[in-house]
Simulated assay, not measured.
Amino acid sequence: MQKTPLSLRVGYFLPYAMSDSNTTYFTNPSTFILLGIPGLEAAHIWISIPFCAVYTIAVLGNFTILFIVKREPSLHVPMFYFLCMLAISDLVMSTSTVPKMLSIFWFNSREISFNACLTQMYFVHCFSVMESGILVAMAFDRYMAICNPLRYSMTLTNSVVAKIGLAVVLRSGMLTLPYPLLVRQWPYCRTNIIPNFFCGHIDVVKLACADIRISSYYGLFDLLSVIGMDVFFIAVSYIQILRAIFRLPTKDARLKTFGTCISHLCAISVLYIPDVFSSLVQRFGHNVPLHFLILITSVYQLMPPMIHPVIYGVRTKQIRNSLLQLFTHKGA
């Protein structure tokens, strides 16, 4: 579920004032308290119903993608390997936070240990970056398939796909590692209450009694290096793809070729458009109620894991046919 908008990692570019001298400091508190959605506590049970439904669809959909690709040898090609990486990323992303969120909504289980909070923070941010990297890899796959079809099988071998996947994992892991390391070094005071239902980086560092500008600056670096670089490479790939498509002789050929990119373009839209919207609201919506900001964040985090398998299940002929064969076979 919880994919923290990359903008939330940046935080507020203002130093946090040290508290007064009689404030009690406690470094690395043993637990944090997650409030859920402040202001909507009475509606937590009702809010949990659509959240639980979306999570269930996300888990079933992504496991179905993994099962179909593993079961069907004809799908053992780079495009579907990348799709499996995306499905795994979505599963880990949503599972990192939804169970805890539901325990808050259903059982009022608000406590989370300091180490568990840091672990959750790491997984949320790490797999958010990883998902963006996977979309870049999928854009490269579409570029090779359309612009260099004769070299496609020679370039995107299983070994190359594995190396790309490893590079995506290493990049996300290394870029995210400073978040929990920075959080661990700050002294905390006054409160250990987090007004959210998961441990986002900026939500935690705002509780620190220190000048946390280094966390804010690193968040800005992460934002620019991930979103900026990934969107740039995706845009370059699609510029080349569109140039190749427009050189095709007939309208039908152009439409058919462009149709192979629709699923990927939808996946990109589902990830980046809500992120941009959430970023704008966080940055300029100073009078927006806190519970509305958290709901926007949760929708942004919940939707991609649910929509991605639906997009590829409906738009990808090979997966659709494999599903039909599976159910037809069982029905027979």
Rank of each mutant, 00 (worst) to 15 (best):
M121A: 08
V98F: 09
Y152V: 00
S172L: 01
M144C: 08
P73G: 06
E72V: 15
S74Y: 08
R110W: 01
Y152N: 04
I104K: 08
V136N: 05
L177R: 07
M101D: 01
V92W: 07
L91P: 02
K70D: 07
N115I: 10
L135S: 10
I134N: 05
M174L: 15
A167G: 06
N158W: 08
A116C: 11
L156Q: 07
C84S: 14
R142Q: 07
L150S: 15
L156R: 08
V169K: 05
K163F: 06
W106I: 08
W106S: 03
M144G: 02
S96Y: 06
E111K: 14
T119I: 14
T95M: 10
L91A: 03
L135D: 01
A139D: 02
S132W: 04
I88C: 08
L118E: 02
T157K: 10
S103L: 13
F140G: 04
L83E: 01
M144W: 13
I88W: 13
G133D: 05
S89N: 15
A162E: 04
P149E: 05
D141V: 13
S103H: 11
H76F: 04
S94M: 05
N115H: 10
L118I: 07
F80V: 02
N158T: 09
N148Q: 14
E111V: 10
L177H: 02
L175P: 00
L75G: 01
P78N: 01
E111R: 15
A137I: 02
F114M: 03
